[in-house]
Design a protein around this nucleic acid. Structure first.
Lengths: 338, 338
DNA sequence: TTGAAAGCGCTAACAC
DNA sequence: GTGTTAGCGCTTTCAA
């Protein structure tokens, strides 16, 4: 319980002595290096167990210049980040992949607008071997700071236009098309869209795919509102749509959170879903399946994208060249609303 | 972009040379030590900026034996952890307090039943100066492993009975009383309870407070079901309550997630809330305030508890003796359901 | 295959 | 105040 434990942690030196070998040999055995003779290796292993030896990270780091840790940088404030189940799933995908290889995950919340100084100090401080950038917004000065860091970085989600960087993502454009096609296929010809934050790649792409397919199939786009990917944003967007008096019979909300917000407002306004308006979301978060919502949506394999970002980052750290990864398997999940 | 940046990071040695002082002096200035003369200190500061010097953590760590990082250990699987907004808020409270002092947060998910070996290696590896244990369950073997670690630990929430440890928490017993008193005060005399996981302190205490006040005031406890603190657990508990045929007019669900699950089932069963059954939850998570739920609940200052765990831990690391902290200000939030 | 020895970059006595 | 110096615990040539 005391901060100063009674027994100072055993060092490699102690292990070597106990095993009757040199420190170099002990080091080799501990790291699982090849070139190890049977008897001596055994002796070292035994000593490691007996003494409860665990390598000192700092000492190892100092010479290898690597930390076995990676950072998850999230340019959002604390409450915002976890209120969207999307983040939860992303983090789950990342941590699970990382646990397999015993790398540590540092969680860096970089409150938007906070000024990137703290982050700059961090990324230059040699804390981590690489970074995953989670919810990035175009034009965020943080992007510059991170890009200048000396460790590899991969974006979770396509980076803003003009920025070439490694990333893993789903095919959001295709997702937008899928949504549009489905609304068309259930007979809707006057479509509306609640889009996400225009400074995020996912929003831009889903919108583009949706508009494209509407044009191709000959459906009319009656209205577009922005909902910022949040529940309340979705409600507000729906209110504006309702007040505008514009009539439409199909609605695509670019994520489920906004879709659920929209659904509530539609209910409140006495609009029947899907009879009057067919509604489709995006992500398939858990609550989308609640009987009360029963939201038709596009399944977003977020967890697998998370795992993919880790794979990319590990390769980048190892110096292996890779291209961005697009995780396939966007699928339509049919429920009640469309 | 390359893992080997062209310019090797400048060392303290380089700064010292550029400033025309010794390494020791440069070190003192960089660390903001007292004993710094004007001119030399200025020269060092200038050199730091010019060279873009950032101290090497590993080297510093090696000698100071501290890491400026703390771990948040969560004995839950990835999906589970973030699906309860309670966690989100707790994490927000912790990260925000930590950001102020530029300490790093390592997120350690220790999937329940995973076997504590990976964690054992971690806590003995000298990665962090201390730990915060988030959602601990009584009897979890992980607790033993963590308690043996050589760094201080503080529990987020009262530890299981019999375990003496530093913690920060709200007064859950009082919260249970508050809930009971309120139901009584709105005229309910036949009460039911949906409790949390019995291996968690918060569940035990809320239940105890609720039962105590019922006994004191002379209200009858008609039924108790366990809901495991999850939404679906709350639904299932409500189903059992309904099927049991037991009649009651007041219901306390030990967290909002279960309360919302219960509310849905009550609606589905045609039971009017609060007319037939008055319902009160605990936590005041964001969705509790949604018009669709309008849940009367006990406001749980989770974020402040999070900040308090950090304070306690920092003191413990500094060797300052502290007692567990109970954050006051549990308050009743009146909405529609009770 | 093994060992000896030279640091990695920094802090902290200890002298001056 | 400031500089000198001795490590912190580990990895990694280089020789043997």
């Amino acid at each position: 319980m005391s901060p100063n434990s009674p027994h100072p942690a055993p060092t490699l030196e102690a292990v070597a002595r106990a095993a009757g070998v040199s420190r170099a040999t002990a080091s080799r055995v501990v790291r699982g290096d090849v070139h190890v003779t049977g008897p001596k290796a055994d002796a070292v292993h035994r000593a490691v167990v007996d003494l409860g030896y665990v390598p000192n990270r700092a000492a190892r780091s100092l010479v290898t210049r690597s930390t076995d840790a990676i950072a998850l940088v999230v340019p959002e404030s604390g409450d915002r980040i976890f209120s969207d189940p999307f983040f939860a799933t992303a983090v789950a995908g990342i941590t699970e992949r990382l646990a397999l290889i015993e790398k540590q995950l540092l969680l860096i919340m970089a409150g938007r607008g906070e000024g990137p100084d703290r982050i700059r100090r961090f990324v230059h401080g040699g804390h981590v071997d690489g970074m995953i950038l989670l919810s990035h917004h175009e034009g965020d000065p943080l992007l510059e700071v991170l890009a200048e860091a000396s460790v590899p970085m991969v974006h979770f989600g396509r980076p803003p236009a003009g920025r070439t960087a490694l990333f893993a993502d789903v095919d959001n454009t295709e997702g937008g098309r899928l949504a549009g096609r489905h609304l068309f296929s259930v007979g809707r010809r006057r479509l509306a869209l609640i889009s996400g934050s225009p400074d995020m790649g996912a929003a831009v792409d889903r919108r583009a795919g949706f508009l494209e397919v509407a044009a191709t199939l000959g459906a009319e786009i009656c209205a577009v509102e922005e909902g910022g990917f949040t529940l309340s944003g979705g409600e507000a967007a729906m209110d504006r749509l309702l007040r505008s008096g514009r009539s439409f019979d199909g609605l695509f909300a670019a994520n489920d959170l906004m879709a659920i917000g929209a659904l509530r407002r539609l209910h409140a306004a006495g609009v029947r879903v899907p009879d009057d308006v067919a509604l489709i979301g995006f992500d398939d978060i858990a609550v989308a399946g609640d009987p009360i919502n029963a939201l038709t949506t596009i399944v977003n394999p977020v967890q697998r994208v998370g795992a993919a970002t880790v794979e990319l980052l590990l390769d980048a750290i190892a110096g292996v060249d890779r291209s961005p990864v697009i995780v396939r398997d966007l699928a339509l999940r049919l429920r009640r609303t469309a």
